[in-house]
Design a protein around this nucleic acid. Structure first.
Length: 276
DNA sequence: CCGTCGCGTACGGTTACTTCA
DNA sequence: GTTGAAGTAACCGTACGCGAC
């Protein structure tokens, strides 16, 4: 039995980010890709919102910037300074995303406007009262489906982010770089957890197979012993040895003569292979 | 060349919050 | 309306790599 772990398509080159970011590539990132998810085309339109703009991609494609009307946009003004926690790189004039805006208004899960409003309000609350106010309480805001989907897409491209990529993503999704960072950390953890579950399942199957094989061998051994006791004339026959065939792993007799006993199992040739 | 210091980041573990049945 | 489980954003402590000194 062979159970190969194939958890996704072959690792793709990091074309997505690499295009616009430093061509020299921050090679400090080991490219280990665990694709547990079904393989998906890199530039598929779904589930990314239609007017979600990938700056380094859309710039190349000549796509118009989208307007942003999601509650998260309220963070935008602040987020520019907000990037204080990650340095000022985000406000770099060379940043490909400096003028980027996005529109999350079309989304909000399940098409449920009320739920969306609720989510948004809670998110807005969290966002508005973010780190500035009381740094003591932990705020947890739910990422929108579109934000999550976009992060997922990015994750499929690369499971780790260099600072530029992080800033760009943060800006694009109107999140703090720290949020993007945390999301990727958690996502890697989830991937690893899933991988562990898959491994466990595989080992479990292996265990079952070995148990079954053991049962079969025990039974075979028992039969051979029974055969031996029921046919005492064996003792008078020339010496017979039991040999395991290396190719088919079946027990075979290696006897110097022929007889009733030899019919029960295969015989081993000089080359050590059985002849069945 | 070697030690160490600071910085950034990844990771494992945990907590706190949200959602849903 | 309440509750428990599941999912996940956020945090903490630690380890490691890397460049500067």
């Amino acid at each position: 039995m062979e159970l190969a772990l194939s958890l996704g398509d072959t690792p793709k080159p990091f074309s997505f980010f690499q295009k616009s970011f430093d061509q020299k590539s921050t090679s400090s990132d080991p490219l280990i890709q665990l694709n547990l998810l079904p393989s998906t085309p890199v530039l598929r339109p779904h589930p990314s919102p239609p007017n979600l703009r990938i700056p380094w991609l859309n710039d190349a494609l000549g796509v118009e910037p989208a307007r942003m009307s999601d509650v998260n946009r309220f963070r935008l003004a602040a987020s520019v300074e907000d990037n204080t926690d990650e340095g000022a790189a985000a406000s770099s004039p060379n940043s490909a995303v400096s003028s980027f805006q996005m529109d999350f208004s079309i989304m909000n899960g399940n098409g449920n406007a009320a739920e969306g409003a609720t989510r948004n309000s809670s998110r807005e609350r969290g966002a508005d009262s973010d780190d500035e106010e009381n740094g003591s309480t932990r705020k947890k805001l739910r990422l929108s489906k579109e934000q999550s989907a976009f992060l997922e897409d990015s994750f499929k491209e690369h499971t780790t982010l260099n600072p530029k990529q992080k800033l760009a993503l943060a800006k694009q999704l109107n999140l703090r770089p720290r949020q993007v960072e945390v999301w990727f950390q958690n996502r890697r953890a989830r991937t690893k957890l899933k991988q562990t579950e898959v491994d466990c399942e595989y080992l479990k199957k292996c265990c079952e197979t070995l148990t079954e094989e053991n049962r079969r061998l025990q039974k075979e051994l028992q039969e051979l012993r029974a055969l031996k006791t029921s046919q005492p004339f064996y003792m008078q026959r020339p010496a017979t040895t039991l040999t395991m065939c290396p190719s088919c792993e079946r027990v075979a007799t290696n006897t110097t003569g022929s007889g009733a006993g030899a019919k029960q199992t295969a015989s081993i040739t000089a080359g050590g292979r059985c002849e069945q």
